[in-house]
Every structure is written in structure tokens, then in C-alpha cells.
């Protein structure tokens, strides 16, 4: 899930990625996870997913496998590359100066460093770009054998798992949830295209749900440890 969202915010998105995401296998896992949520939240997320699926179906066809329709490409540039759209950077959302590489960027970087990681040189976006932050969550949820990473069956010990979940929890709480909902609201308000509206709605609700699920996992782990 995180990986998909990260890719959608990173660059123009083609049919392949979208159809990969919506393939049966993936959806089954996702559905089983969503089923664990309280019914209200689950319904909301399912609604977001089906809306997105519908708009995606309408906007991709066989010819535009690589890029998606021209409208969708224009919308990507409008939303994420020109100032009339949104600034997908935590620094702009939370910083006083509305500039890049301001205090919040320093804090995001400090967070990555605190667990001993740094942005890859090949990553063209800044550390606090929404795609990079979501990508960070994707890596960690994969590692903790969480959610969608159904392949990650290898056993990891509980302590390590707790750490990985704690990191995700903290990053969500201290960073993503502080600004991504605002970003998603802005996208929903500004976009002229149902696909990005769907993506933003999904991101917004998914992040909130993920936090509560992570909290639950943490409580469970703590109980076990006790």
C-alpha cells in the first residue's frame, strides 16, 4: 500500500503500476487487513479504494500503459510541479518560511539518522517529499512483515519487530500525520481529476487507520512481553 502511494506521488503513474496494485492477490490481503479495523473505518477505506479503482479504470486504457492518459499527466504536473498545485514537502507545510529544507526537513533527516539510515544518492526528491516519506514507511512495513508484505514470512524476533513497528508509529505520529492530511485535503480541493482525488482520499484515511493499527500492535507486543 505505502509503496503504491509512494510511487503515485513520486512520478507520473502508468497503467502497469495501477493494475499491479489492484490485482486480486493484493486486494485479498488488503481486505483482510481492513477487516480488522472498526467497521466505520473499514467502510471508509473500502469506499476510497473502490472509488480509486473506478477512476483508474476510466483513465487508463491499453494504449497508455507507460504513462497514463495525457489528462492524467497534465494533472500530475499541475499538482506536483507547479506552485498552483501543492508543495509535496513537509518543510513547506510545517515550516514557518514555506521554503524547502527548512526546520521540518532537518527534523525528518534527523529522524532517519536516529535509526541509522540516509537518503539514497539516486533519490532525486528531498528527504521530506511525500513520496520519500511514504517510501520510508513502505520499507519499514515490509521489514516488520506488516500488512501488504505477505512475502515477508521470514521470522524476525519480537524485539526487533517491536522496534520496527515503533519506528513506523513514531514517524507517522511525528511527521506524516502532522502534514499529509493537510496535503491530501489540498489535493482534493485543487485537483480536477478523480484519480488524484481518489489517491488523496485513500492516503488520508489510510494513514489514520495505520496509526491505530500500529498502536494496537504495539500494545499487543507489550502485553506479550509482560
Amino acid at each position: 500500500m505505502y509503496s503504491f502511494l509512494s510511487q503515485v506521488f513520486r512520478d507520473e503513474v502508468g497503467w502497469q503500476k495501477v493494475s499491479d496494485f489492484f490485482q486480486e492477490e493484493n486486494m485479498t490481503v488488503l481486505a483482510s487487513i481492513i477487516a480488522q479495523l472498526p467497521p466505520e473505518k473499514a467502510q471508509l477505506l473500502n469506499q476510497c479504494l473502490s472509488n480509486l479503482r473506478e477512476s483508474a479504470g476510466r483513465n487508463f486504457n491499453g494504449k497508455e500503459k507507460e504513462f497514463g492518459s495525457l489528462d492524467l499527466r497534465k494533472e500530475f504536473a499541475y499538482l506536483f510541479l507547479t506552485p498552483q498545485g501543492v508543495y509535496p514537502f513537509e518543510s513547506v507545510y510545517l515550516g514557518k518560511k514555506k521554503l524547502l529544507m527548512d526546520k521540518p526537513w532537518e527534523e525528518v533527516r534527523a529522524f532517519y539518522r536516529s535509526i541509522g539510515i540516509e537518503k539514497d544518492k539516486s533519490e532525486i526528491h528531498l528527504e521530506d517529499h511525500i513520496a520519500v516519506e511514504l517510501g520510508f514507511m513502505a520499507s519499514f512495513s515490509y521489514l516488520s512483515g506488516d500488512f501488504l508484505s505477505y512475502e515477508g514470512e521470514e521470522k524476525i524476533d519480537e524485539e526487533e519487530k517491536e522496534f520496527l513497528i515503533q519506528v513506523q508509529h513514531d514517524f507517522l505520529e511525528q511527521h506524516l500525520l502532522k502534514w499529509a492530511p493537510g496535503l491530501c485535503d489540498d489535493i482534493m480541493a485543487k485537483t480536477r481529476h478523480p484519480f488524484y482525488h481518489g489517491v488523496a482520499a485513500l492516503t488520508r484515511w489510510f494513514l489514520a487507520c495505520d496509526l491505530s493499527m500500529l498502536e494496537e500492535s504495539l500494545t499487543m507486543l507489550t502485553v506479550k512481553a509482560d
Binding site: E12, K74, F76
Partner: peptide
């Protein structure tokens, strides 16, 4: 005032 309709 005309949107250029940029594409990356």
C-alpha cells in the same frame, strides 16, 4: 492567465 497545460 492561460494554463499552459504542462506535462513533465
Amino acid at each position: 492567465g492561460v494554463d499552459p497545460g504542462w506535462v513533465k
